[in-house]
């Protein structure tokens, strides 16, 4: 005769350690302050670089490949020599690298929502925007790392910025300001689109035209008039021209002011929308 007894408890030794660990916990508090919470989320973004280096590698190998390919394949045709072309195209390659990286802001956020980490963060007693702002701070650091990669490779194949180290630093800072502001838009997309894969698809559709239909890789004078019209209103054009001025040692105050104003405007418009979506998400 076989006997099943289905109500038995599995033997498990956990009780005393658990009770002491739980009872020994400090009483509930009000959570970390705004700055600490934000920095904690930035720390998380940096840990991700260590655990998922592919994200950073994808974003940096791609431009390195482009740098080499464009310089040696198109350089002679577009400007006359690979060396001269590198000097012309570097600001564009740099901008493209970092602008493309901004989409990972949306991918990461969307993954958090899908996996439930987002609910966990939203139920913490912390400053509400901390997860979003912290992610942006972490992402900005990643943009800096990618920029260093691009300059490293360019230097190896003979690039020397006429504007010197100051020009390089200025161009990178300008780029980081612009891309942090642009990231707010990606946060909106990350909060709205259903899956991380959809984010990737949508973003490529937007980013390729934005970065290529600009003076990043070829002088727009050779393009048809209607393409030139788009180039003229493309914000990446503005960014590339301003960065080029800094790198070449001939900064244009008007361009710089416009980029900063545009970055400010993007933040003012997109940040409240992103925060509102974040708070209201059901």
């Amino acid at each position: 005769m076989t006997i099943h007894q289905t109500t038995g408890r599995p033997a498990f030794e956990l009780d005393t350690r658990l009770i002491s660990a739980v009872a020994g916990a400090p009483p509930p508090d009000t959570g970390a302050g705004a700055l600490r919470a934000t920095l904690t989320f930035a720390w998380r973004a940096l840990l991700k670089i260590r655990h998922v280096p592919e994200q950073l590698l994808d974003a940096t190998l791609f431009p390195i490949m482009f740098t080499l390919m464009f310089t040696y394949v198109f350089g002679g045709a577009v400007i006359g020599s690979p060396e001269a072309y590198l000097g012309y195209a570097l600001p564009g390659i740099l901008a493209q690298t970092v602008v493309f990286m901004t989409m990972y802001t949306a991918v990461t956020l969307n993954t958090d929502i899908e996996r439930g980490a987002f609910d966990r963060f939203r139920s913490q007693p912390i400053w509400r925007p901390a997860p979003l702002v912290g992610a942006l701070v972490g992402d900005t650091l990643r943009y800096g790392i990618a920029s260093a990669f691009v300059f490293g490779i360019a230097t190896l194949i003979g690039y020397r910025a006429p504007g010197g180290l100051g020009g390089v630093a200025g161009a990178v800072v300008l780029l980081l300001v612009f891309c942090s502001a642009l990231s707010w838009l990606w946060l909106i997309i990350g909060l709205t689109v259903r899956t991380p894969a959809a984010v990737m698809g949508a973003s490529t559709m937007i980013l390729f035209p934005l970065t290529f239909v600009s003076p990043a890789f070829a002088p727009p004078e050779t393009m048809p008039a209607w393409v030139q019209d788009f180039v003229a209103v493309n914000p990446v054009t503005l960014l590339v021209e301003a960065a080029r001025g800094l790198l070449d040692g001939v900064p244009d105050a008007g361009d710089l002011a416009l980029v900063l104003a545009l970055s400010g405007a993007m933040t003012v418009v997109f940040a409240p929308i992103a925060l509102r979506l974040y708070n209201r998400r059901t």
Binding site: G116, D119, R120
Partner: peptide, 12 residues
Amino acid sequence: LTGQFASLDEDL
């Protein structure tokens, strides 16, 4: 709150 799906960062 411990949600229905493990609400952890899988990469960490």
